[in-house]
């Protein structure tokens, strides 16, 4: 069994985790184009090399980030999302429908 190290819980069997997709910053929903928003939600760059990904520890509902080499499947490091998101993101107009043109 592959082992992944959760920043909160330590090394665990990979069966305790769920893959959450590539990490990229969310575009501003107010000013984003539909194309940009769709890319954020649906499209993956699918790069060969070291990428940053979201992972989820099922037992604790804990989301974190991992740097993984997609060629060798080696996990370089895992870290807390708070290392990137230090404060809450606010968008002025909460009613904006980002999916519309």
């Amino acid at each position: 069994m592959k082992i992944l190290t959760c920043p909160l819980n330590g090394p665990r069997n990979i069966s305790e985790f769920t893959y959450g997709g590539e990490f990229h910053h969310m575009p501003d929903p107010k000013n984003s184009t539909a194309r940009k928003w769709a890319e954020h939600v649906f499209f993956h760059a699918n790069e060969a090399g070291i990428v940053t990904e979201w992972w989820f520890h099922n037992a604790t509902s804990f989301w974190f980030l991992a740097e993984r080499n997609t060629i060798t499947d080696e996990v370089i490091r895992t870290f807390n999302a708070s290392d990137i998101f230090s404060e809450r993101q606010e968008f002025n107009d909460q009613t904006t429908n980002a999916g519309s043109n």
Binding site: N9, R12, N13, S15, E16, H57, N58, A59, T60
Partner: peptide, 10 residues
């Protein structure tokens, strides 16, 4: 330990 026990979260 917050982990999988008998394949359920515990």
């Amino acid at each position: 330990a917050q982990t999988s026990l008998a394949r359920v979260n515990a």
